[in-house]
């Protein structure tokens, strides 16, 4: 399993266009689909976590790397998805895939609802606004007893088996990557980046910046909500502090930064790195976060374009990528 994932950096290094990328994605899905047949629970756990992170990071990268929307509010949508998924599973008995689709819709709708407020803010102020949104939702969940209050809610039936969950999340990661490929390997990318660079000048070129930003925001939020939904299904029990916590938003941000902002492979490499780091530091619980912090500082400082950017600079890989 780990071999298969590590080998997929070829995904973007072939730059002959979106078609190759799509083919590689399909290939990766085909191969990874069979991982549960021979890999143990430990690896499936790691694979699951990597895929969830990948979905989140892809969406975030689309917003920030392309449309210039740096969000610290990913957890709003993760939490929303988590609550929606467990609610649907518990109350309606909806099958998981359907529940996830509804999560996506809910995430998109929430994004659309808050966008009139958030899009008034540009640049860093947008970032601060998204952070506040997550906090608002968390406080809401803590206080409204219908949602279980501070103790949260528990999945009444047994969660699906790990191999099943793994395949779901794999498909989700595939879809997320595919969507992003479609957005970044086509004309859409030019439009997105124009909005990122200078909204007013873009408008003067006939672009409707509001709609473009809204599109990216809705898409990324739908992805995050699905990731939250499947994460909740796996956990079986959720509470507001965890699901709406700032930690999620920060994790996503660090993954993309560690991988390389705006780079095609950044999210994947970042997700792998964060999962691997978590494993490596599991033995030092008392200083875990401090060590992670130091590593983050060093990486930001010495790998400005993230790990992928660093790799591209190495002559051999660089040539292939260019």
């Amino acid at each position: 399993m780990s071999d298969a994932i590590v080998s997929s950096p070829r995904v973007g290094s072939a730059s002959t266009g979106g078609l190759v990328e799509v083919a590689v994605l399909v290939g990766a899905l085909g191969v990874l689909w069979f991982v549960p047949d021979f890999a143990g629970d430990y690896w499936l756990q790691l694979g699951f976590r990597t895929c969830v992170y990948l979905v989140l990071a892809q969406g975030w990268n689309l917003m920030a790397g392309s449309a210039g929307l740096v969000s610290l509010g990913t957890s709003s949508f993760i939490g929303l998805g988590a609550y929606a998924a467990l609610g649907l599973l518990n109350r309606v008995g909806a099958p998981l895939p359907l529940a996830l689709l509804i999560c996506a819709t809910a995430g998109g709708v929430l994004a659309a609802l808050v966008s009139p407020a958030l899009f008034r803010l540009r640049g860093l102020y947008f970032t601060v606004g998204t952070l506040a949104l997550a906090e608002l939702l968390r406080l809401l969940m803590v206080n409204v007893s219908a949602f279980g209050g501070a103790t949260g809610i528990i999945l009444q039936e047994d969660p699906p088996a790990l191999p099943v969950l793994f395949r779901y999340v794999l498909v989700l990661a595939f879809l997320a990557s595919l969507t992003i490929t479609l957005c970044t390997r086509t004309r859409v990318s030019v439009i997105l980046r124009a909005v990122r660079d200078d909204e007013d000048a873009a408008a003067q070129m006939g672009i409707r910046p509001y709609r473009v930003k809204l599109g990216a925001f809705v898409l990324a939020s739908a992805l995050a909500a699905m990731a939250g939904g499947i994460q909740a299904a796996k956990l079986g029990a959720i509470e507001p502090y965890g699901m709406f916590g700032l930690q999620w938003s920060i994790d996503v941000l660090s993954m993309v930064i560690i991988g390389g902002v705006g780079l095609r492979l950044g999210p994947l490499v970042g997700a792998l790195f964060v999962v691997a780091l978590g494993e490596a530091l599991a033995d030092y619980p008392e200083a875990h976060t401090a060590i992670a912090g130091v590593i983050l500082i060093v990486l930001i400082r010495f790998a400005p374009q993230g790990i992928v950017g660093l790799a591209v600079k190495l002559p051999l890989i660089g040539r292939v990528q260019a």
Binding site: R187, V190, I191, R193, R196, D197, A201, A202, G206
Partner: peptide, 27 residues
């Protein structure tokens, strides 16, 4: 229109700067 103080899309190539206009009016 042009801006008196130019406002190109700074992080895009010159050619991409033109693509923005082309694709926005004729996707």
């Amino acid at each position: 229109r042009t801006y008196q103080i130019p406002r190109p899309f700074l992080d895009m190539s010159v050619e991409e700067n033109l693509e923005v206009a082309q694709y926005s009016i004729a996707p």
